[in-house]
Design a protein around this nucleic acid. Sequence first.
DNA 1: AACTGTCGTTCTGTCGGACAGTTTGACAGA
DNA 2: TCTGTCAAACTGTCCGACAGAACGACAGTT
Lengths: 261, 261
Amino acid sequence: MTEPQFSTIERQPTYRLVYTAIQNEITCGRLKVGDRLPSETSLAEQFGVNRSTVREGIRLLEESGLVTRTGGGRPRVTLPHYLDLASRASRALVLHSVSFRELWEAAVVIEPAAAEYAASRIDDVHLDRLADSIVRMEDMVRAVEEGRRVDTDAFVSLDREFHEIISDSTGNRVLALSREPVARLFIPAGRVILPRLKTHRRVLDAHIRILAALREHDTALVRDWMKRHMEDFKRGYEATGMSIDTPLDAVAIGPDAMGTG
Amino acid sequence: MTEPQFSTIERQPTYRLVYTAIQNEITCGRLKVGDRLPSETSLAEQFGVNRSTVREGIRLLEESGLVTRTGGGRPRVTLPHYLDLASRASRALVLHSVSFRELWEAAVVIEPAAAEYAASRIDDVHLDRLADSIVRMEDMVRAVEEGRRVDTDAFVSLDREFHEIISDSTGNRVLALSREPVARLFIPAGRVILPRLKTHRRVLDAHIRILAALREHDTALVRDWMKRHMEDFKRGYEATGMSIDTPLDAVAIGPDAMGTG
DNA sequence: AACTGTCGTTCTGTCGGACAGTTTGACAGA
DNA sequence: TCTGTCAAACTGTCCGACAGAACGACAGTT
């Protein structure tokens, strides 16, 4: 029973060593963002390995977001951006069969907080962008109310855009990173709710009130409206008859929220 | 000026097509978690491409966390886990030079919220684990107060463990995912503060109070203490003389918070 | 001066083949 | 039930090769 606990001995394959080596060059700043990676042949010579091995290492870098190939050309060193990370995060969450409840609980915490931070800092540029987003949404709502068919996806994107602008105007990238995967998973939920319940007007009204409060820099009010907005969303989800405890289904969600990069 | 806007035409290289093809098999459930991937030769035949190409595709899968090679053997299908994603997220944040302020602002939102959710759901198992964590921390605090040298890293890990257990007992994986990168970046900050200010006792006291409130399932009280605990942390950081607006430095942070997988 | 076409170089993407070392799985022995 | 043996299958790594694309320089055109 009391067998001595050996830590698993790890033999890293060469391509992985190449990966970490180059990665270190980047995180230590010797390879700067925007630089092009040395040619594969040159790297192969420097490391004393075969070019194929180098390539496999570069694929790891590529997927980790530290390197991007510019349209088939030589790869450049880049900073992994939120979007890439978030798409993978949301994919992971779906694969782990998280429920709408988990998703919503996170959102009802993060989203009002972001809005509150935004209220104290938002500038005119962002306010204008929000106003613009609302104008476009108004058009769509009117269309819906006149019985015309509107593109649900477009409406959802508009909703997402509004929240994104708010998140952006917090100037807080850590919070933005936390928020992003949640926001992505809300998309498919919105796609289900809107066409069934025609909640377009409610969404628009909430946005209008939030913007008004943001203009006043009234942190408490902004927070409050955003929270209501989120609670509304949950009520909508429940009203469709779906249980909030069933896992979000990968099939229903589709590829765009999962994003492959 | 009004040139027609063409969307950039994307030609995916073959290895990337292989990647998405296999990825789809996984997300659609045709390749289940725990399954071994077909052999590279077999995949090469099925796709009608060379084995090298398949390998590069597999490297992408590997780094995306959908596939893990079990100690040099045949790779298995796995679910990407929070840890892997979080390490990449925190690395990205550091590379983007986020400030302690951004980090803290996110933490002061997420951490108390997690604690609040935990308060209403935590079970005896988690309560015991928290108690155990506190006992061990008590030992270390006593050691510090007796002037003995203690391992700062060990103390920080213990702190982290406490918060991790709380996060775990929320049963909310979305929130856990949002929390994780933030928690990771707090590690280096803690490593700086503790040895300079000897705040060990304060940390311990906060944990004790939080646990007591959790035992009572007093959501408001838990939330409150956790918030104070976070504010304390910020005060500590400021007391070291460091500006909360200077970017967290990759060098000072070291590799363990960045994690390479 | 700014745009367009040409051309040679360099490098990536893909392919084929090859081989050592390991892991796997089955089978026999204690 | 545990241990030792063995062949097959497969991964990790290497070598060599070639088409097509991007790059950069340079000349030609308006």
